[in-house]
Amino acid sequence: MKIFQMYEADIYRMAFVYMKNEQDALDIVQETAYKAFDKIETLKEPAYFKTWLVKIAISSSLNRLKQLQRIIPMQVDQLVELPTIKTDAALSLLLKQLINELTTEEKGIVLLKFYEDYTFKEIADTLQMPLGSVKSTLYRAHKKLRYQMEEVDFYG
Protein backbone atom coordinates (compact mmCIF):
# COMPACT_ATOMS: atom_id res chain seq x y z
CA MET A 1 0.00 0.00 0.00
CA LYS A 2 2.85 2.37 0.88
CA ILE A 3 4.34 1.99 -2.57
CA PHE A 4 1.05 3.10 -4.11
CA GLN A 5 0.88 6.05 -1.73
CA MET A 6 4.10 7.38 -3.26
CA TYR A 7 2.39 7.73 -6.61
CA GLU A 8 -1.24 8.41 -5.78
CA ALA A 9 -0.89 12.18 -6.23
CA ASP A 10 0.55 11.74 -9.74
CA ILE A 11 -2.14 9.25 -10.64
CA TYR A 12 -4.86 11.57 -9.37
CA ARG A 13 -3.55 14.57 -11.29
CA MET A 14 -3.22 12.63 -14.52
CA ALA A 15 -6.73 11.26 -14.06
CA PHE A 16 -8.03 14.75 -13.38
CA VAL A 17 -6.68 15.98 -16.72
CA TYR A 18 -8.67 13.23 -18.43
CA MET A 19 -11.80 13.20 -16.31
CA LYS A 20 -12.05 16.95 -15.63
CA ASN A 21 -13.59 16.58 -12.19
CA GLU A 22 -12.56 15.48 -8.72
CA GLN A 23 -15.06 12.66 -8.22
CA ASP A 24 -14.28 10.82 -11.44
CA ALA A 25 -10.54 11.33 -10.92
CA LEU A 26 -10.87 9.78 -7.44
CA ASP A 27 -12.75 6.86 -8.97
CA ILE A 28 -9.82 6.34 -11.33
CA VAL A 29 -7.37 6.39 -8.40
CA GLN A 30 -9.43 3.71 -6.65
CA GLU A 31 -9.74 1.66 -9.82
CA THR A 32 -6.02 1.94 -10.53
CA ALA A 33 -5.19 0.76 -7.00
CA TYR A 34 -7.65 -2.08 -7.38
CA LYS A 35 -6.36 -3.24 -10.75
CA ALA A 36 -2.72 -2.86 -9.77
CA PHE A 37 -3.00 -4.95 -6.62
CA ASP A 38 -5.40 -7.42 -8.19
CA LYS A 39 -2.81 -8.30 -10.82
CA ILE A 40 0.33 -7.53 -8.83
CA GLU A 41 1.68 -11.03 -9.40
CA THR A 42 1.80 -10.37 -13.14
CA LEU A 43 4.27 -7.51 -12.66
CA LYS A 44 7.56 -9.21 -13.39
CA GLU A 45 9.86 -6.26 -12.80
CA PRO A 46 9.07 -4.22 -9.64
CA ALA A 47 11.22 -1.35 -10.94
CA TYR A 48 8.48 -0.66 -13.47
CA PHE A 49 5.73 -0.36 -10.88
CA LYS A 50 5.10 3.31 -11.56
CA THR A 51 5.12 2.84 -15.34
CA TRP A 52 2.61 0.08 -14.82
CA LEU A 53 0.39 2.27 -12.64
CA VAL A 54 0.47 5.09 -15.17
CA LYS A 55 -0.57 2.67 -17.90
CA ILE A 56 -3.45 1.36 -15.79
CA ALA A 57 -4.55 4.89 -14.88
CA ILE A 58 -4.60 6.03 -18.51
CA SER A 59 -6.46 2.98 -19.71
CA SER A 60 -8.97 3.25 -16.83
CA SER A 61 -9.56 6.92 -17.65
CA LEU A 62 -10.18 6.16 -21.31
CA ASN A 63 -12.57 3.33 -20.42
CA ARG A 64 -14.43 5.50 -17.95
CA LEU A 65 -14.80 8.31 -20.49
CA LYS A 66 -16.27 5.81 -22.91
CA GLN A 67 -18.64 4.52 -20.25
CA LEU A 68 -19.78 8.04 -19.41
CA GLN A 69 -20.51 8.69 -23.04
CA ARG A 70 -22.43 5.44 -23.13
CA ILE A 71 -24.68 6.47 -20.29
CA ILE A 72 -25.59 9.99 -21.35
CA PRO A 73 -24.85 11.58 -24.68
CA MET A 74 -22.99 14.53 -23.30
CA GLN A 75 -21.34 17.73 -24.16
CA VAL A 76 -17.78 17.76 -23.00
CA ASP A 77 -17.94 21.32 -21.79
CA GLN A 78 -20.67 20.46 -19.31
CA LEU A 79 -18.29 18.26 -17.36
CA VAL A 80 -15.53 20.74 -16.74
CA GLU A 81 -15.06 21.46 -13.06
CA LEU A 82 -11.74 23.15 -12.81
CA PRO A 83 -10.26 23.30 -9.35
CA THR A 84 -9.56 26.59 -7.68
CA ILE A 85 -5.89 27.18 -8.23
CA LYS A 86 -4.14 29.73 -6.14
CA THR A 87 -1.31 30.21 -8.58
CA ASP A 88 -0.64 32.60 -11.38
CA ALA A 89 -3.07 33.18 -14.20
CA ALA A 90 -0.77 31.69 -16.86
CA LEU A 91 -0.75 28.31 -15.12
CA SER A 92 -4.48 28.41 -14.75
CA LEU A 93 -4.94 29.25 -18.42
CA LEU A 94 -2.57 26.49 -19.48
CA LEU A 95 -4.40 23.98 -17.31
CA LYS A 96 -7.70 24.93 -18.92
CA GLN A 97 -6.17 24.50 -22.35
CA LEU A 98 -4.66 21.18 -21.37
CA ILE A 99 -7.96 19.88 -20.02
CA ASN A 100 -10.38 21.36 -22.52
CA GLU A 101 -8.58 21.64 -25.82
CA LEU A 102 -6.56 18.46 -26.11
CA THR A 103 -8.00 15.15 -27.25
CA THR A 104 -7.59 12.17 -24.94
CA GLU A 105 -4.78 10.88 -27.16
CA GLU A 106 -2.97 14.22 -27.01
CA LYS A 107 -3.43 14.43 -23.24
CA GLY A 108 -1.78 11.04 -22.74
CA ILE A 109 1.24 11.99 -24.78
CA VAL A 110 1.62 15.46 -23.25
CA LEU A 111 1.31 14.07 -19.71
CA LEU A 112 3.82 11.30 -20.30
CA LYS A 113 6.28 13.59 -22.06
CA PHE A 114 6.20 16.62 -19.83
CA TYR A 115 4.77 15.44 -16.52
CA GLU A 116 6.31 11.99 -16.34
CA ASP A 117 9.42 12.82 -18.43
CA TYR A 118 9.10 9.78 -20.70
CA THR A 119 11.11 9.49 -23.88
CA PHE A 120 9.21 9.20 -27.15
CA LYS A 121 10.13 5.52 -27.27
CA GLU A 122 8.74 4.96 -23.77
CA ILE A 123 5.54 6.82 -24.69
CA ALA A 124 5.14 4.73 -27.84
CA ASP A 125 5.60 1.54 -25.79
CA THR A 126 3.24 2.65 -23.04
CA LEU A 127 0.46 3.81 -25.33
CA GLN A 128 1.17 1.15 -27.95
CA MET A 129 1.40 3.73 -30.69
CA PRO A 130 3.88 4.04 -33.55
CA LEU A 131 6.77 6.34 -32.70
CA GLY A 132 5.94 8.63 -35.62
CA SER A 133 2.35 9.02 -34.44
CA VAL A 134 3.55 9.95 -30.95
CA LYS A 135 5.71 12.72 -32.39
CA SER A 136 3.08 14.04 -34.79
CA THR A 137 0.41 13.96 -32.08
CA LEU A 138 2.67 15.82 -29.68
CA TYR A 139 3.38 18.37 -32.38
CA ARG A 140 -0.36 18.85 -32.89
CA ALA A 141 -0.93 19.18 -29.15
CA HIS A 142 1.93 21.64 -28.94
CA LYS A 143 0.28 23.83 -31.55
CA LYS A 144 -2.99 23.74 -29.64
CA LEU A 145 -1.43 24.83 -26.39
CA ARG A 146 -1.06 28.46 -27.17
CA TYR A 147 1.75 29.43 -24.86
CA GLN A 148 5.43 30.09 -25.07
CA MET A 149 7.06 26.71 -24.98
CA GLU A 150 10.65 25.91 -25.46
CA GLU A 151 11.64 24.03 -28.57
CA VAL A 152 10.71 20.39 -28.19
CA ASP A 153 13.27 17.81 -29.02
CA PHE A 154 11.27 15.66 -31.36
CA TYR A 155 13.99 13.08 -31.51
CA GLY A 156 14.06 12.57 -27.73
Binding site: M1, F4, Q5, E8, A9, Y12, R13, M14, F16, V17, E22, L26, D27, V29, Q30, A33, P83, T84, I85, T87, A90, L91, S92, L94, L95, L98, V110, L111, F114, Y115, L145, Y147, M149
Partner: peptide
Protein backbone atom coordinates in the same frame (compact mmCIF):
# COMPACT_ATOMS: atom_id res chain seq x y z
CA UNK B 1 5.38 24.93 -17.10
CA UNK B 2 3.29 21.91 -18.10
CA UNK B 3 4.74 20.04 -15.15
CA UNK B 4 4.04 22.98 -12.86
CA UNK B 5 0.56 23.29 -14.29
CA UNK B 6 -0.34 19.67 -13.66
CA UNK B 7 1.25 19.86 -10.21
CA UNK B 8 -0.97 22.86 -9.45
CA UNK B 9 -4.06 20.62 -9.53
CA UNK B 10 -4.99 20.51 -5.84
CA UNK B 11 -5.22 17.12 -4.15
CA UNK B 12 -8.55 16.33 -2.51
CA UNK B 13 -8.74 15.23 1.12
CA UNK B 14 -10.19 11.84 0.29
CA UNK B 15 -7.38 10.84 -2.07
CA UNK B 16 -5.54 8.41 0.16
CA UNK B 17 -8.79 6.93 1.40
CA UNK B 18 -9.88 6.11 -2.14
CA UNK B 19 -6.55 4.45 -2.93
CA UNK B 20 -6.96 2.35 0.21
Amino acid sequence: NIKDTVKSIPLPEGLHKRAK
